[in-house]
Design a protein around this nucleic acid. Structure first.
Lengths: 246, 246
DNA sequence: CGGTCACTTGATCGTCTTCAATACCAGTGG
DNA sequence: CCACTGGTATTGAAGACGATCAAGTGACCG
């Protein structure tokens, strides 16, 4: 039996005195903003910076949740697997996203870097201390959890009740807002994830994703200058489709 | 044009000195257990007891979230609607379930009583005060939110990647544990919800639910003594189906 | 009884999947 | 420069699962 040997990428760990939270890109949008500026050294001391190469799984479903993460750069996909390999991507984690809410001793999902990802890692114990010392951070976590719950319910609606066209439209509209609601919309969308990722996120196959995107293109709703780049031509039509007003 | 007039059920409000939290059925399993016994009067003072008749919608998606609820009796369905009437039930709320996590000023879902439901209502302001006074309660809320998030992701996997048989099997196995994981399994399941509710929960139609249940019955996996009652005959087979090990 | 409502069962249909072939693109080496 | 390779995306044809449409059953109730 031939065996492919895959070099397991070593996760580079950078724990240095240089690690500073005060000019972290993620802070404005992350739970860390609950900690006042003059105490940021506490936060820096509790965390370790990691560099994750693309394709690396850094959280595995079912493994003990000994540490939590904060994404400070890049995009990760969060997913669950069935024994036969079927996959459901439950979300994409961008700048500022806190990983470790859906947890009950063990992680309920796996996480894999799509492009080069930078993480802040907090051990469970150290985070516990931080939360006890900064109740505001716990409040922020609750806020974040509430928002994720809203998003999750929206996704259930999509997966349970929307058609392929509606799912793709919803996805594109969401991406045009940078993955979060209430953000300014951009016509140009970067798609760091593959078609397969999009399919597994929307509960479809890659063929259906591909076909539907070409439909949208022939209908002049979008343009696809490159594989990982997309231009929205008719946002209103897509929004109507997404909210199923058609 | 003929018009059906529906008597809007008045929600009975019982705000009396008799409202006591110390022998509330919901307390052991709800967020209220974060408050020590000798301070339960604070909790009672902050809440109002409501009786909700079956079929009454007591939370409407999009309306301002001025109050939160705790279910102390009965079962409610939580759902989202599309403009054309398609519905996705995102969950069922039983004894002890806190309603108001998936919130961002306005409710992200609607809630309707399936059978006679009793609720504890907390105004947003009063709950705020309670949470500030009892940080343990905030911690409990975060726990609850984390658990709901885990459940939501599991449901996304179901909706996005499982077949009708697998969905029904997952549903039945979950119900045999009383809707929550880690609880003792019972062979006899009460199904207060209609087939239509089950369908909208699993992203199917009532016909598919009905058919699949009869398949299960002819395969001796289950028995259906009454419409709202179900007996599991072969739990192992159902569990294998649910986790897609077949 | 007739009426309603929820559920079941049957026949047909359509959307999305599956299977398969082809195109595309970047990287590598002759 | 071009052939070769591996990974990813697109396109086509056929098939299946679940949806839709429609009829029938049974329970409950005034």
């Amino acid at each position: 039996m031939s065996m492919t040997l895959i070099a397991r990428p070593r996760v580079r760990e950078a724990r240095t005195g240089l690690h500073q939270c005060d000019h972290c890109d993620a802070r404005p949008s992350s739970v860390c903003n609950a900690i006042p500026d003059h105490l940021l050294d506490r936060l820096a001391a509790a965390s370790v910076v990691l560099d994750i190469p693309p394709g690396t799984t850094f959280i595995t479903e079912g493994e003990p949740a000994t540490a939590f993460f904060n994404v400070t750069r890049g995009t990760a996909k969060l997913f669950k697997l069935l024994p036969d390999g079927r996959r459901q991507i439950t979300g994409f984690a961008h700048l500022g996203h806190f990983l470790g809410l859906a947890v009950s001793d063990t992680f309920a999902f796996s996480a894999e870097a799509i492009d080069p990802v930078k993480l802040c890692r907090f051990s469970r114990a150290r985070l516990r201390v931080l939360l006890d010392d900064f109740p505001a951070m716990e409040k922020r976590l609750l806020e974040v959890a509430a928002n994720e719950l809203v998003a999750a319910q929206e996704q259930m609606l999509l997966l349970g009740r929307k058609t392929a066209r509606e799912r793709l439209a919803s996805f594109l509209v969401m991406q045009s807002r940078g993955g979060a609601p209430c953000q300014p919309q951009r016509r140009r969308i970067a798609l760091p994830m593959t078609r397969s990722d999009i399919a597994d996120y929307l509960g479809l196959t890659i063929e259906t994703v591909s076909r539907t995107l070409t439909y949208f293109r022939t209908e002049r709703l979008i343009d696809i200058p490159a594989q990982s780049e997309l231009l929205i031509q008719d946002l209103e039509a897509l929004e109507n489709l997404a909210d199923c007003l058609t």
